[in-house]
Design a protein around this nucleic acid. Sequence first.
DNA 1: GTTATTGCAAATGATTTGCACAAGG
DNA 2: CCTTGTGCAAATCATTTGCAATAAC
Lengths: 165, 165
Amino acid sequence: MDEAIREKLETFIRRKGLRRTAQRDRIIAEVFSKDEHFSAEELFERVRRSDENASRATVYRTIALLVEADLLRQIDLGDDQTTYDPNFIEKPSHNHLVCIDCGKVVEFEDPGIEVLSDCVTRRLGFRAVRHSVKIEATCEQLRKHGRCPNLIERRLSGRRLRKRR
Amino acid sequence: MDEAIREKLETFIRRKGLRRTAQRDRIIAEVFSKDEHFSAEELFERVRRSDENASRATVYRTIALLVEADLLRQIDLGDDQTTYDPNFIEKPSHNHLVCIDCGKVVEFEDPGIEVLSDCVTRRLGFRAVRHSVKIEATCEQLRKHGRCPNLIERRLSGRRLRKRR
DNA sequence: GTTATTGCAAATGATTTGCACAAGG
DNA sequence: CCTTGTGCAAATCATTTGCAATAAC
C-alpha cells in the first residue's frame, strides 16, 4: 500500500473523528494489495481468507468509508455488478475499455479526452469535477486470429460475467 | 412515439417469435412518451396511472425486452439507481453531464470525443462498439449567482437523489 | 390448439441496520 | 469512561421467478 493512501486515510479518519481498528486496517490492506477491480462480496471472501471471523457488514462499511474518502471508486463496467476500482490514486483520471467478446477490462488515460470533456462542460455552463469514459469494444485478436486468451480465461473463471440477465 | 421505434420493435418482435400484446404496447408507449430518464419503479407508477392493474413483473420484463432490442438503454448517473434512457434512438451516441450541486442531467453530443475514443480504442487493439461518457460537474449558475433553479426543484421533488447511502 | 404472456405472490440476493458487546482514545 | 466499531442475524428493497390462468397467432 502506498504512502499517499496512508496519508489521505489518516487525514480522513482524523477529520471525521473516526478510530483506527485492526479490522479496518486489514480490509484496507486487502483493497490495495492488488490493482484488481472487485465486488463487495469478492472483497469479503479475500478478507475472510486471512481473518476467519471478519464480518460482511464491516467490509461493506469500510468500502463505504473508502468511497467517501475518495480512495476507492465505484465504477460501472456494464455487468450489473457494483464494482470497485482501487487504482484512482495512482491514475486519478483513468478510464475503462471493456471488451464485449472476451470480457477483458483495460484501463487507459487520455489527456485529449480530458481536454475535450472540459470544453464541452464549460460550453454547457458547468465546471467539470470528474469524468468517466467507458468504451465497449470488440476484440481484434479474436477476429483476426480466431481466438483470444481472455476469452478462455473468462470461460474458466466465470468471474466478471453479468449476474442478472 | 416515433416511426423508427415502431419499426425496430416490429422487427425485433417478429425475429424473436414474440407476440404483440396490449400490455406491452401500453408500457412501451409510456416509455417513449417523454424524453425523461426513469427507474423501473417510476415507470411502473406511470403505467399504473393509465392501467390500474398493470403488473410490476410485466413492466420489468418489458424493460428487459427493450434493452435487449437496443431501443432503451441502461445508464449510470452515479445515483445508485438503475436508470433507463429512452433517447438513444434520436441521439444514438449522446452522453451525460450530471451536476453534483443541483442534480441536473444534461445530454450532449460531441463528435470530438467520439473520434478520440475511437483512436484510443484502436491503439489498444480493439474496435469500438459504443462509448459512454459521464461528466460530473458543478453548477456555474450556483457559484456566480448564489442560486440555481434546479437546486430548488430537486429539493422539492426529492427525485433522482441517491437512495442508498 | 399451441406457445407466449400476464399477474400474483413468493423467492432471491445484494446491501443495510438494530443491537449487545468489544475496543480505541 | 465515553463513544465509535464490530459481528451477528434480521430487515430491506429492487428485481426475478414459478405457476396457473389468459390471450396471441
